[in-house]
Amino acid sequence: MNNSVNYSKKLSAKFLLKEKLIKYFFALNGFVAVLFILLIFGFLINTGFEGFNHINLSDYFFSKSNINGISQYNFEWYPTSENSRFSIIPLLAGTLLTAIPAVLISTLIGIIIGIYLAEAASPRTRELLKPIIEIFAGVPTVVIGFFMLVVGATILNDLFFPVNRLNAFLASLGLSFIVIPIIASLTEDSISAVPRELRMASYALGANRWQTIIKVVLPASVRGISAAVILGFGRAIGETMIVLMASGNAAVITVDVFRSVRSMTATIAAELGEVSQSSPHYFALFFIGLFLFSLTFILNLIAEIFLSKMRKKLGN
């Protein structure tokens, strides 16, 4: 009797130690992950700020030129010219012109899919469909880019007669392939998180299924859905390969989605490989990287705040 108590005490002590070790191990892992992110951010900031020795902050947005005594503002990205111009405005415009239509398309389709999966689909269909949709998010983006370049461009060309064969809209369609799964899957999650009691109460008041979804379930999960859309937007902004292959990469400022545009990510990908180190061009690319990092960081932060607020609200 006594023996076995001792034994179990010993065992629990050993167990506790092990538990503690595992805890520290995981804490360390988490810490290392955060540390790496901070180091990357620090490196970006450091190199980006070093660039201010070569390029003024205002030069990243516009350059002033004097033609016949009239000063003109110039918004061009042309780092290899004799008088280099480093305005990131056309690149930012290009990024937005590919990302915004992609998010609009994806929000519409993604939310519909999310609602269907959470509310209408039978458990079996859901088990079948959800993994399939999520697999889409895992398709290598170069494959999607190649598909848009070869097949998508021809179809789009025959349908809309765009100004440029490779254009922003083509890239948006490609982006939708990876943004729809993100939005659909997160929408489904946040709708499923709406407590059963809310639905039951709605039915008890005489609402039918459609009214319940529109008037009760969707408003309750609106924060989660907004977070899904913002995360999708961040993904669309950060995506490189699809945009590089399908958008045509002309650094112009335009609002016409059927024209070629060039995104920030595509510029870094196409130019950083060969630019000579410590040249103004090199630093300008790092500045774009810093800008992009901050943009996606802020978007993800907002999404995270929305999600945690929703969890709190539904938890109460």
């Binding site: 061009e76 042309y78 008088n83 990469n249 112009v252 070629s260």
Partner: peptide, 21 residues
Amino acid sequence: KPFDFISRTQVLQGTASLAEA
């Protein structure tokens, strides 16, 4: 002063994709 390409020139990666376009 060297002339610059007009900025609406579409930039393609590699000769093959240029020929394709």
